[in-house]
Design a protein around this nucleic acid. Structure first.
Ligand SMILES: [Zn+2]
Ligand SMILES: [Zn+2]
Ligand SMILES: [Zn+2]
Ligand SMILES: [Zn+2]
Lengths: 160, 160
DNA sequence: TTGCTAAATGTAATACTATAACATATCAAG
DNA sequence: CTTGATATGTTATAGTATTACATTTAGCAA
């Protein structure tokens, strides 16, 4: 339930260890973390912020890894299917997963001022949504839980 | 916390009373429920299902109320601002509010089989998301809470 | 090795969602 | 009536995502 991302941390390490975990996970599950996919994950990991598909594509293009939209969307499909990234529905944007490997129902805290995004872990069947679903006899398969607001830094900042 | 919408009910009445409530609310708050806006609300109310902006526009166009995208988006802006409708972020679609008048943080149960949508009331500061936000020092202004899954009917149906 | 198959990539075209910009019309004060 | 604010009409464009099909690559069996 910790919402990483608003606290400063060793981000270079953050990227490297996550990529290593992704390599290991793919080896174990017979998934192929191809150059395009790996680079896409690396790009997303470079910030605790959501990137649009076309933002991602622009970086991939600079690296000579492809220029047409499907290049980005295919990489994002792979990363989200594998659980390495999530889509932020409220922003039409994508972010690397901060709780790697766990089969989880992510919840996001999105700062509307500085655009940083923190991911908190929840479980689909807990909380208000789970209650409502049980009461209605609804079987949840996936949840979208996002909060828009101000992160701690931006609450203090006069205007920045 | 009841998730209306999966149960059968007198829908003609459902539409009529909600429109009357909207009329009253607008009169009281000096908002103008113009013909386009009122018809847009009526169209959304006609189903417990989310409609895309262009779906709405198609119906408005048939009624001679406008053909260009801004017509639909302006009506939707008004309806969502007034609290008469909500956007379902996960579907890029819009639905009439089922808990009229209340200043609430809606949560949606979306059936991926029959496309019906039920709205449950929650409050932004309760539940898992609220906990996570408090722990992170995050100030919530708006929440997006959506569950994808199967409604009671579609769980039973063999394949339909 | 060769040939087969499935997965991944390259590329063009198109569909879907949403907003910007500006002209015109309507309406409620003053 | 004049004026300013709100609402509408209309064109163009921006932003997001998928379809379709050709080509290449990787994995595997004969
Ligand atoms: Zn995650
Ligand atoms: Zn911030
Ligand atoms: Zn109804
Ligand atoms: Zn259903």
């Amino acid at each position: 339930m910790t919402a990483f991302g608003f606290q400063p941390h060793d981000h270079t390490d953050c990227i490297r260890t996550t990529l290593a975990q992704a390599d290991a996970y793919c080896a174990e599950h017979k998934l192929k973390l191809t150059p395009i996919r790996r680079r896409a994950l690396e790009i997303l990991l470079a910030e605790h912020r959501a990137l649009g598909a076309y933002d991602l594509l622009a970086v991939l293009a600079k690296d000579g890894l492809g220029t047409a939209p499907p290049v980005a969307y295919r990489a994002l499909d792979f990363l989200t299917s594998a659980g390495f990234a999530h889509k932020i529905e409220g922003l039409n944007a994508y972010i690397a997963c901060a709780h790697f490997g766990a089969d989880h129902s992510p919840a996001f805290l999105i700062c509307t001022s500085c655009k940083s995004v923190a991911e908190a872990e929840t479980t689909a069947t807990q909380g208000r949504l789970g209650e409502a679903a049980r009461a209605a006899g609804f079987a949840i398969s996936r949840t979208v839980v996002e909060a828009l607001g101000l992160c701690p830094q931006c609450q203090e900042a006069p205007c920045a």
